[in-house]
Design a protein around this nucleic acid. Structure first.
Length: 256
DNA sequence: ATGACGCCTTCCAGGCGA
């Protein structure tokens, strides 16, 4: 089974590009982020034509998450409990024998912006919510965490320490999720590799190698033991047939 | 130091992303 996460930066603007990826990578379950569309306008029919059904939790213009799957999914949680005012950022479903969640974590903007404090509080709420997950179960939470876990995950390395995405406060929040018993599936198979999942659109960052790894698939031990391959699909950060890519690459994992 | 690119929106200059 192939599972994936992808911040698509606008599901309607990206539809043709996403279709190309679905056809060539054939994932079974995909968490999407940054839909930028209301639930009423979500393109269910277009995904159905590609063989995928979708559960969406969106809002107009901003944020928004969805799960695509080949087999029907049952919605479990829409929105991080207690954090509805911070945007449509979490969706959890039961699908294909998995307890599968997708998250679009807050950006924070700058260290002196109110959104930074909101980001930290949101992660605290996420940790509290995930503390209720059975560590023996097959649970996956994938998404755009908007935190660079370690210096290895940033093109600037330790030079970026203490800047936004790389502060001790943010990294402690990310570690608090790992400490619940979750494994970063990419790091599990590639302990020392520097691979990025996001590159700024501007200034040729992609071709200059100026990226960050902020999109992760985390899983319980029951999932980590089944992982055989994890790819950050940088081919799909490039233009494809003249179509513009998201600024994030998809990340997928193959499970036994 | 700045802007760079691309998305969205009562349709277009401005906010936002990371």
């Amino acid at each position: 089974m192939r599972i994936a996460t992808w911040n698509v930066n606008g599901v309607r603007a990206r539809m043709e590009f996403i279709a190309h990826w679905l056809e060539h990578r054939a994932p079974d379950v995909v968490g999407l982020q940054e839909l930028k569309v209301s639930d009423a306008d979500f393109p269910h029919e277009e995904f159905a034509a590609l063989g995928y059904q979708a559960v969406a939790h969106g809002e107009k213009a901003w944020n928004g998450v969805a799960v695509l799957s080949r087999v029907p999914a049952e919605a479990d949680t829409r929105g991080l409990p207690g954090r509805a005012d911070d945007g449509a950022r979490l969706l959890r479903v039961r699908v294909a024998g998995l307890d599968f969640a997708t998250v679009y974590c807050p950006n924070g903007k700058t260290l002196d912006h109110p959104d930074y404090r909101m980001k930290l509080a949101w992660f605290d709420a996420l940790r509290d919510y995930l503390a209720g997950v059975d560590p023996e179960s097959a649970f996956v939470i994938g998404g755009d965490y908007n935190i660079v876990p370690t210096a290895l995950d940033c093109w600037r390395g330790e030079a970026a320490d203490d800047s936004i995405f790389c502060t001790g406060e943010e990294r402690a929040r990310y570690r608090s999720l790992i400490d619940l018993g979750l494994t970063d599936l990419f790091r599990h198979l590639h302990p020392d590799e520097q691979k990025f999942s996001w590159w700024d659109y501007r200034g040729g960052s992609f071709y200059r190698g100026m990226g960050l790894r902020i999109d992760m698939l985390l899983g319980t031990a029951a999932v980590a033991s089944r992982v055989r391959r994890v790819e950050i699909d940088r081919e799909y950060r490039k233009k494809k047939d003249g179509l513009t890519a998201s600024d994030h690459a998809p990340v997928f994992a193959d499970l036994d």
